[in-house]
C-alpha cells in the first residue's frame, strides 16, 4: 500500500486532459479568443459606448469613418457602431438561451426514448419525426406571428423547432450506454430509474451533447438573425439581423449598413463552430478520424 502512495506520478484530472486536447487545436483557440472578445463587447460595450442606439445622431447615409462615426450611419441616421454593440447583447442572449431550451427539450425527449425503449421510444420518436417535417424557419415564423414577437417568445420558438437533432443524439447515446456493464451493475444493485437516467447514464452521454449544444448556439444566432431580418422581432430592441433587414432597401446608398452587421454574425458563428470543433477534439477523441 505504502509503495503505491510513493509513485511520483501526478494523476491528471479528465478536465486537464480535455483542456490539453482543446489547446492543440489552434483554430479552436483562436475561435475562443474571438468569442471572448465578442462577449466582452456585448457586456461592457453598452457602458463604454452609451446612448440609445435608435437615436438619430447625424445625417443619414454618412459613410464609415466620417464625422467621427467609425462605421457610419444608416438610413435613419443612426450610429451603426452603437446598433452593432447593443445588438451583440440581444443576438448572444437569444442564441444562448434558445440553445438551452433546445438542449433541455432534446435531452428530456432523447433520454426518455433511449432509456425506456418500447412504446415510449416509439411515441417520442414519431413526435420527433413530426417536428422534422415542419420547415423550422416557417414554423417559428408562425409561432412568433400568432403569439407575439417578444424576445422570450422568439427564444422559445427557436428552441421549439430545433430540438430534434439533440434528441436523436441523446437517444443514440442512451441506447448505447444503457447496455454497458456499469449500468447493468447499478441496475442490479437496485438503483432507481430516475437516478440511473440522471446520475449514471447522462453524465457519460454528455460529451457529444455538449458539442452539439455549442453548435446550437451558432444556429440559434443565425436563426434569430433570420427572423429579425424578416422583421419578426421586438421592434424596440436592436439586433444584428434587424439592422440588415431595415437597411436592405438602401443597399445602393449604404451597402456598409448591410455588410458590416453580416460580418459580425458571420465571425461570431464561425468562432462558435471552431470552438465546437475543438470541444469535439477534447471530449470525443475517438471520433476524431473524420
Amino acid at each position: 500500500m505504502s509503495q503505491i502512495e510513493n509513485i511520483p506520478v501526478k494523476a491528471r484530472s479528465p478536465f486537464s486532459e480535455a483542456f490539453e486536447m482543446f489547446r492543440r487545436n489552434h483554430a479552436a483557440v483562436v475561435g475562443l479568443v474571438v468569442l471572448a472578445i465578442i462577449v466582452a463587447v456585448a457586456i461592457v460595450g453598452p457602458m463604454v459606448y452609451p446612448g440609445n442606439p435608435f437615436d438619430m445622431v447625424w445625417a443619414p447615409f454618412t459613410p464609415p469613418g466620417q464625422e467621427g462615426y467609425l462605421l457610419g450611419t444608416d438610413y435613419l441616421g443612426r450610429d451603426i457602431l452603437s446598433l452593432l454593440i447593443h445588438g451583440a447583447k440581444v443576438s448572444l442572449t437569444v442564441g444562448i438561451s434558445a440553445a438551452l431550451v433546445t438542449v433541455t427539450i432534446g435531452i428530456t425527449v432523447g433520454a426518455l426514448a433511449g432509456f425506456y425503449l418500447g412504446w415510449v421510444e416509439e411515441v417520442l420518436m414519431r413526435v420527433t419525426e413530426f417536428f422534422q417535417v415542419l420547415p423550422t424557419l416557417l414554423f417559428s415564423m408562425v409561432i412568433v406571428a400568432l403569439f407575439g414577437a417578444s424576445l422570450p417568445m422568439i427564444t422559445l420558438a427557436i428552441g421549439l423547432v430545433s430540438w430534434p437533432a439533440v434528441a436523436r443524439i441523446t437517444r443514440a447515446e442512451f441506447m448505447r450506454i444503457r447496455e454497458l456493464e456499469y449500468v447493468i451493475a447499478a441496475r442490479a444493485g437496485g438503483v432507481k430509474n430516475a437516478k440511473l437516467i440522471f446520475s449514471v447514464i447522462l453524465p457519460n452521454a454528455l460529451p457529444p451533447i455538449i458539442v452539439q449544444a455549442a453548435l446550437m448556439v451558432g444556429s440559434a444566432i443565425l436563426f434569430e438573425a433570420g427572423l429579425s431580418f424578416l422583421g419578426l422581432t421586438d421592434p424596440n430592441v436592436a439586433s444584428w439581423g434587424q439592422i440588415i433587414g431595415s437597411n436592405r432597401e438602401y443597399i445602393l446608398d449604404a451597402s456598409y449598413a448591410v455588410t458590416v452587421p453580416g460580418v459580425a454574425i458571420f465571425v461570431t458563428v464561425l468562432a462558435i463552430s471552431l470552438v465546437g470543433d475543438g470541444l469535439n477534439d477534447a471530449l470525443n477523441p475517438k471520433l476524431r478520424q473524420r
Partner: peptide
C-alpha cells in the same frame, strides 16, 4: 455554416 443566407444573397446582389 457560418454565413447567414440572406446576407450571402445581399452580398451577391451588391
Amino acid at each position: 455554416y457560418a454565413a447567414p443566407v440572406f446576407w450571402t444573397g445581399i452580398l451577391l446582389l451588391i
